[in-house]
Each structure stands twice: as structure tokens, then as C-alpha cells.
Design a protein around this nucleic acid. Sequence first.
DNA 1: AGCGTAACTGAACGCGCGTTCATATCCAAG
DNA 2: CTTGGATATGAACGCGCGTTCAGTTACGCT
Lengths: 195, 195
Amino acid sequence: MARTQGSHSEITGPRIRSAALALFAKHGFAAVSMRQIAGEVGVQAGALYNYIPDKQALLFSLMKGHMDDLLAACEERPALNTPQDRLRDFVDFHIAFHLDRPEAVFISYMELRNLSPENFAQIEALRRTYENRLEAILEQGRAQGVFEVADTKIATLAVIAMLTGVTTWYRQAGRLSVTQVQAVYWDMVRKAVAA
Amino acid sequence: MARTQGSHSEITGPRIRSAALALFAKHGFAAVSMRQIAGEVGVQAGALYNYIPDKQALLFSLMKGHMDDLLAACEERPALNTPQDRLRDFVDFHIAFHLDRPEAVFISYMELRNLSPENFAQIEALRRTYENRLEAILEQGRAQGVFEVADTKIATLAVIAMLTGVTTWYRQAGRLSVTQVQAVYWDMVRKAVAA
DNA sequence: AGCGTAACTGAACGCGCGTTCATATCCAAG
DNA sequence: CTTGGATATGAACGCGCGTTCAGTTACGCT
């Protein structure tokens, strides 16, 4: 047997990425075999190599894609004026975006050490870019005297860590909607950096 | 060759745990082989099985040990009265304890999915116990009207996520001492839950 | 001095890994 | 209807995995 009925590059490619995303998130990159991914897609392991050069590139592609999505979505937010409005928007955006793709988030935080040094550097740079957006907001607020933080850089990382933590406990069937979660976190962030 | 000079159970046992801790933290449980661990200790792979039943038990033992240490150290803190004092003490303790053993922290957060279901349940329960200590503090403060949080459970997880995040960026040679870091985080936590 | 056992070696077990490749089939274009 | 490239198979490659175990050595004890 060889090529099967109804097979198309446009279908199999995304399916590989989707299956890999789910499996990597669940079991970890190192614990997932190419045969498992192929099995999920419904092809043999060898077929994967029509779409990706190797396993490492697959991981990098998923993480790079996630970070690109993150930054692109971030760019599209409305341009607000006051630091308070900008911070509130950042909180809302970060929570909504991350709750929307928990698997990609999980991978992007957990599998950094499985990236080759060059790939790691690239992802790290993108993450830094994202962090800088929040840092700029906090810095602006501090300059205007509406925020008061002992250390802007640490505050940036602290806020992001706090917000990202939402993915570890949030369940869609839980008692809180995304909007409610955003409100609860905004309340804490607002106060934490308040003057 | 067989038993080597100066070999002792009391020495090799801890050395295995120590080597496994470092390697698991650096490369991930699934990516580290028993032969790597043995190599680090200076023995053959087979010798490891005089000390541990299998690889899974080694991981569990490390994580269980870490959680036990955490809870034991937590118990030993002075009994303070006001919620503010208790919260400040919790922040200081959490940061100091976690910065003191970054590898164990890393493993305990990252390798949960590599635990067998029964082992996972045990670690999860210990983590819950720890979280409950903070939640009790926040709840007491809320009852007394000195804290004001929209949702105590979420606030608990948010604070812990924020504090634990310190391990991702703190470097011993960095510009801030542990004491300074504690102060910066305390400032944010205090305000975040303030009435 | 010699014995028993704790501590370790080194080889072996079956297995699954990531990756490659010759081969086969399907589909679209001429 | 033919043909050529895209798409997949399935077998194979060498290798390292976790684990077991018979055998060997060093040490503590009498």
C-alpha cells in the first residue's frame, strides 16, 4: 500500500501539528514518539517527514507559531492612552489569549529546555519582546505617578507569572467565566501596582 | 570487577538522588537515562537498583521529599497573630525556601505529568495542603476586614504563582539579594490583597 | 585469619526510538 | 488515456532505553 484515498497536504500538515501539540502538552516532548503522533493522525511515522525535517523542528515550529500568534494578537489591540487603561487591557488580553490555547501555553513554558540553543534563543527573544510591552506600560504609569512599583522589571515578571498561572487551574466547566476571572485578576493587579 | 574501594550505601544513595535531581531539572525526567545518572555518580546503571525499585519511584521520591521538606519547614515558622504578619511571613518563607532549592522546585512543577496516577494524587494532596495554609491566612484577613479579595481561592493561587515565578529569573549573582526580592514581592502582595 | 554479606560490575534481555528509503498508489494536468 | 509528481507505506537502520542477574570484590565482624 502507499498513498491512501483522499490524502492531501493541506489536511495532513495541520493535523500533524495539532496532534503533536496535544500529545506534547499531555506527556511532554521527550515522552512522545513520532509513531504516537503519526498514529493520532492516521499515517505511518515515515509520512511525517514529508512535512517536517525532524522532531526538534516540529517542537520549534509549534512554539514559534504560538509566540508569533501572541505578539500578532497583541499588536491588534486598540491603542489606549492612560497607563491604567493599557494595563487593564493587557490583563484582559493575556488571560483571554492564554485560556484560549492552554496546550500551546503549556508547551511554550515547559519545553524550552528541549529546544536546541539556537531555537531557544529565538523563542526567548520573542518572550522578551512580549514582556517588554508590559514593562513599557508599567514604566509609563510610574513616570506619570499613577503606578508605584519597587522594581519595574520584577513587577513585570511577577504580573505575568501571576496571570499565566490562571492556566493551571482554570476549567471551562468551572464556576467562573473568563470575564469574571479577568475581573478578579484585574482587581489584584491594579492594586499591586497602585500608587 | 565488582565492589569498588570506599563504596558505601550511605554515600551512594544520596549521591544518586542528588545526581538525579540535577539531571531531571536540567533535561527533564523523560530525557534522562538511568545510565546518565549512574555515570554522574560513578557507578554502573545496575547499581542504582540497590537503592531504588525503578525510575518512576526515584522521581516520586524526589518530589515527595521536596513537598515534605516544604511542609515541615512551613510548620516550623513562628506562630504570628495578625493576618498581615502571617502573610508577610509566608511571602518571606516561600521566596527563601524556593530560591534555596531551585532544582527541586523546577522538578516538582514540571514533572507532575510523569508521575503515575497514584503518585500524582499524593503530590497533589501535599500541594493542596500547602496552598491551604495561605488560603487560611487570606481568609482570616478577609474575615477581619484587613484584606479584600474578590475570590480567596483564586487569590491564593495567584499569589503563589507570582511568588514561585521568582525562581525563573532569580540569579545568585544578580543585582538583588534575597532580602531585597522579598521586600519587592511583599510590597506587591500586600497591596494586591489590601482592603 | 577467615567468613558472610553488602556493594557493585558487566553483560544481556526485549523493545521502542528517530530517521531513511525504495516502492506503491492516487490525483491533476495535458 | 497517459503521465509525472505529490503523498503515503512498511521495512529497515543502528542505537539507547529500563531492568535483571550471575558473578566478583571489599568490608565488618567474630
